[in-house]
């Protein structure tokens, strides 16, 4: 990855220039662009950025697309930041390919760009990427589920409540990570649905929505009445699945639900025994680190093999499994968001 080193050198150069330039302004402006304004994950991210901006004495301009996938809205937000003379911005791209030319334009204009949560394609189109290792987050819950089931893991019946039919990056990374952790042969590791493991009973689409999650689980139950493991893309989908299971009396502990996100309602659901385990990610930390890097101009060291800085994911469960590192619900509640 020689290219990466060259880029790092370039970034360092830019950073030096930025630090010099920054010194001459009273208050710098930095931006944060999220996919939407309403998702609690992004709401928390904005709160984290706001707090950090205050601490660093810079002005934060927050913007967002109108809906998940709104590339035009994000393009307009970047153009506004360029014309506002911002020092740089952090962005959660809605469309990881289509936004690349606009990001190049911003970087050519001297702005520092840090991508959060969803890596660009190609990843090195930004100065740096801070994100959750979603495959690892998936593996954690997969390992926990397999260990907790023990011998019963060999004849588990698993339902997957995924995100969307077009399998966005986060969707297949979490799904395939779970399978790898559980010990399922994933075939193509960047695509789900091509596996032939008999333990996979059904894939349904939840769109990460509580109501659609319930509908998806109801349909899955029709196909797999003897399901005993449910993987969910996020905690709202898990809460919806629980309602569907409860309606048919399967809330007696016979079905294990695992999820990913670590939002406060989700962690409380772990505490209540609704969700067996969830992998927690850290949006506040992502945003705060990004702002620090933009303002100081110092990009932290990034493992060239990964290509992005992993802001970490921790497994939260009330029933730790041997050999799988986890934190308690109490710790999880302290770190939760949303």
């Amino acid at each position: 990855m020689g290219k990466w080193n060259i880029m790092k050198a370039a970034v360092a150069g830019l950073a030096f220039y930025g630090a010099m330039a920054g010194a001459s302004y009273a208050a710098d402006t930095v931006g944060l662009i999220t996919k939407t304004e309403t998702n609690p994950f992004f709401v928390k991210m904005r709160e984290g950025a706001q707090a950090k901006a205050k601490e660093l004495g810079v002005t934060l301009i927050a913007a967002a697309g109108k809906f998940d996938g709104d590339n035009d809205g994000q393009v307009a937000a970047i153009e506004n930041l360029i014309s506002a003379g911002a020092k740089g911005f952090a962005i959660v791209p809605s469309d990881s390919k289509a936004i690349v030319p606009t990001i190049k334009k911003a970087r050519d204009a001297g702005l520092k760009v840090i991508v959060l949560d969803t890596p660009l394609d190609p990843m090195d189109a930004a100065d740096a990427t801070f994100a959750t290792d979603n495959r690892k987050a998936g593996m954690l819950i997969g390992q926990w589920a397999a260990k907790t089931l023990g011998d019963k893991a060999a004849d588990a019946k698993i339902v997957f409540l995924d995100l969307a039919t077009n399998q966005p990056t986060v969707d297949f990374l979490r799904d395939q990570g779970f399978m790898q952790g559980f010990g399922i042969d994933v075939k193509d590791p960047n695509k789900y649905g091509d596996e032939d493991d008999k333990r996979i009973c059904d894939h349904e689409i939840s769109q990460g929505d509580q109501e659609k999650g319930r509908t998806a689980m109801e349909n899955a139950l029709q196909k797999c009445p003897d399901v005993n493991v449910v993987y969910t893309i996020n905690e709202p989908a898990a809460a919806g699945a629980w309602e569907a299971l409860k309606a048919v009396g399967k809330d007696d502990g016979s079905v294990m639900i695992v999820s990913i996100d670590g939002g406060c309602p989700g962690v409380k659901n772990v505490q209540a025994g609704v969700i067996g385990a969830t992998s927690q990610q850290y949006p506040l930390k992502m945003a705060a680190m990004a702002l620090e890097a933009i303002v100081s101009g110092k990009i932290p060291d990034i493992d060239p093999k990964m290509g992005f800085l992993d802001t970490g994911a921790q497994l939260i469960t009330a029933k730790p499994a041997e050999g799988v590192t986890s934190i308690s619900v109490e710790e999880g509640l302290k770190l939760c968001w949303g």
């Binding site: 309403t38 990460g208 929505d209 509580q210 109501e211 919806g240 309602e243």
Partner: peptide, 10 residues
């Protein structure tokens, strides 16, 4: 139907 309130739903 969803048991609680989800501002993201619908």
């Amino acid at each position: 139907r969803i048991g609680g309130v989800s501002p993201q739903a619908g």
